[in-house]
Deep mutational scan, measured.
Amino acid sequence: KFGRVHERAEGPAKILAIGTATPFHWVDQSSYPDYYFRVTNSDHLVDLKEKFRRICNRTMISKRHMFLTEEILQKNPNLCSHNEPSFDVRQDILVSEIPKLGKEAVLMAIDEWAQPKSKITHLVFCTRSGVDMPGADYQLIKLLGLSPSVQRVMMYQQGCFAGGTMLRLAKDLAENNKGARVLVVCAESSAIGFRGPSEDHPDNLIAQALFGDGAAALIIGSDPKMGLERPIFEIVTTAQTFVPNGDCHLALHLREMGLTFHCTKDVPPTIAKNVESCLIKAFEPLGISDWNSIFWILHPGGNAIVDQVESTLGLEPNKLQATRNILREYGNLSSACVLFILDEIRKKSGREGLKTSGDGLDLGVLLSFGPGLTIETVVLR
């Protein structure tokens, strides 16, 4: 008597548009150690500064975009301390800036989509910054002038794996609601975790050397309108798992001094060791076991992770080039990073006149991972 209210779509979910945005301000990685130790009044920690310089040199990052300028840091000195309470200051900045950054990426996506924004039916927003109620999803709806009846899902504090999570959720929403057009937004800022150095917490140096700011937005829907919408990728399958006891290797915690970062040297080999089982589960039903026969979007948690995944799986050097390019130009953008790589690989395919948006290949994989050593596996066509 009370059956399904919403009719299912006929076809699989497809990515119809991609937009990205970054803050205008950026830092050069080669000179960042001098800048970082100067603005945090830590130049007296000579040995720690040299250690940080070595870490920065190993990241293979060229530059990173950041909202925090020297002027902002001078006005808010607690942000430059390692342990002073600064959460309220971070909140005041990020509750406002995260939706604005997301808006810039959304406008780029809508411009490519070339359809009225009134056709957006759902919003899925993800960030690890600016936790608030009502959330960044609500603020973004107002900034864009979208209908208050847009169906919203707000996900805070997920971390680097969440780019894949957003695709998984959007696929379910698009395929189970005929005519749905799902706006996916990942907006991230390193301002939540920026803090001064400490000899007692070397993990913090890794975070300060890796993370950048950026937002990515996608429009996802099934059954694209012929002649009006141009699909870029099809989302074939999605899956999530985590490595048992992985939280002892990688975890982040909200504290009075901001978001703290805990990471062990076992993260790269542990991820590399567990990736292939995810690939087998995803691609065995499709008859694929040659990992060089697919295109790759791999989250660059750090250069060591990229190198070890490449080595463990025997990947050809060009397979992870898009990942390395984004890491070099932006650093680790947390949940937004794989979506930047997705954009990079389709643009490169277009520039080179390849037959598909995925490096000329039919199928590919998007792998994202993060806290708890959670792994998201997304098969794309």
Rank of each mutant, 00 (worst) to 15 (best):
A304T: 09
I294R: 04
K319A: 12
T356Y: 03
S289T: 08
I288Q: 04
S357M: 04
G350E: 15
G301N: 00
P268C: 13
S81G: 03
T260G: 12
L146M: 00
E316G: 05
A109G: 09
G370M: 14
P148R: 06
I55V: 10
N245H: 08
Q29D: 07
Y32S: 04
L143A: 14
L298D: 10
S86L: 06
F233G: 03
L373F: 05
F67R: 13
V306Q: 13
R255N: 12
A21K: 09
T356Q: 01
E276Y: 01
M257S: 11
L333N: 05
R8K: 12
L143H: 14
N83F: 15
E229D: 05
P268R: 09
I235E: 01
S335E: 04
L373W: 06
P371M: 01
G331V: 03
L107I: 09
V243G: 10
D47Q: 12
P85F: 00
F261K: 15
A136F: 12
F233Y: 12
L254T: 14
A105T: 09
A336K: 00
P77A: 07
S335C: 03
V338W: 15
G302I: 07
V275N: 03
I297V: 12
G102R: 13
I345G: 02
I232V: 05
F233E: 05
N41C: 06
Q321V: 06
S42R: 08
A9G: 07
I110M: 14
E7G: 08
H249C: 14
A251H: 13
P23K: 12
L342E: 12
L373G: 14
E284P: 02
I232L: 04
F283E: 03
E316C: 09
W296Q: 08
E229G: 04
V365F: 08
E352V: 04
V106K: 02
G350C: 08
E71N: 07
S311T: 13
D47L: 00
L361M: 13
P134I: 01
K63I: 11
A336C: 14
P85T: 09
G145V: 06
I120W: 03
R128P: 04
E10T: 11
L367W: 12
Y36H: 05
T69K: 10
L363E: 14
E352D: 08
I326M: 15
Y35R: 14
Y330G: 07
H44L: 08
E50A: 05
Q240H: 04
L380N: 15
A17C: 02
Y330A: 05
E316D: 12
P244C: 14
I280P: 07
K281N: 07
H122Q: 06
S149E: 06
V243T: 14
S86Y: 03
A322M: 01
V95A: 11
W26G: 09
L298C: 03
V365C: 14
T127V: 04
R54V: 04
H122N: 06
E276P: 07
Y35C: 11
A13H: 00
T121V: 03
T374I: 02
L101A: 07
P300S: 07
T356N: 11
K273V: 00
L286M: 06
L320W: 02
T237G: 08
P77C: 01
L279T: 06
D343M: 00
K51T: 08
Q321Y: 01
L48W: 01
T237W: 05
K51N: 08
L143E: 14
F242R: 10
E352S: 10
I271M: 14
F24L: 13
G364T: 00
I305Y: 07
T270L: 08
S349Q: 09
M66A: 08
P99G: 15
F125P: 01
G358R: 02
V306E: 01
V306F: 15
S334I: 00
H6D: 08
G130Q: 08
H262V: 13
I375V: 10
E97K: 05
E276I: 02
H65P: 08
E376Q: 03
A114G: 15
N292Q: 00
V379W: 08
I72D: 01
P116V: 02
E284H: 05
A336L: 04
V89T: 11
L144G: 02
D247A: 13
Q308N: 06
E256D: 13
D362H: 01
L252A: 15
T40Y: 04
L373A: 14
S277R: 09
G130F: 04
H249G: 13
L146P: 05
S357T: 12
P12S: 09
V267D: 13
T323Y: 00
D111K: 13
L361H: 14
K348L: 06
I341R: 04
G331R: 12
S31E: 15
D307N: 11
G360M: 06
T270W: 13
D43R: 03
L315D: 07
S368F: 02
E276V: 07
H262R: 09
D266H: 05
N318Q: 13
L101F: 01
G135S: 06
T22E: 06
P116F: 01
K75Y: 01
H262F: 03
V306D: 00
K117R: 10
C248S: 15
V378C: 11
F295E: 02
D290Y: 03
A21W: 04
L363G: 12
R128V: 06
V243D: 14
I297K: 12
L252E: 15
H249N: 07
C263P: 09
E376H: 01
G353V: 05
R324D: 03
V243S: 10
T270V: 09
T260F: 03
D88R: 11
G358W: 04
V39L: 15
E329N: 01
G258V: 05
S349C: 03
G358E: 04
S349Y: 15
T241P: 10
E104T: 03
S293R: 08
N303M: 08
F67W: 13
S81W: 10
H25Q: 06
S289E: 10
T20H: 05
L101P: 02
A13C: 00
L140R: 03
H25T: 11
C248Y: 11
T374K: 02
L143N: 09
G350A: 15
L361E: 13
D247E: 08
K281D: 12
S81T: 13
G372K: 15
P285I: 07
H25L: 11
S86Q: 13
W26C: 14
T270K: 09
K265W: 02
T40F: 00
S86H: 02
E71W: 07
Q308G: 06
K49R: 10
L259K: 15
I297G: 06
D43T: 03
V106W: 06
C263S: 14
P33T: 14
Q115G: 05
I345Y: 02
D92A: 11
F52S: 03
E310A: 09
Q74A: 05
D247K: 15
G360W: 01
K14W: 11
R8A: 11
V46F: 05
E256K: 12
E310D: 04
S289I: 01
I297R: 03
S96F: 00
F340K: 11
H25M: 04
V275S: 09
L373E: 15
K51E: 11
I61S: 03
F295N: 00
L361S: 12
F2S: 08
I98T: 05
I18P: 04
L327I: 06
G11C: 05
D137R: 06
P285E: 09
Q115K: 05
E10L: 09
C263E: 15
K348V: 05
T40D: 02
V124F: 01
K355H: 08
T323G: 14
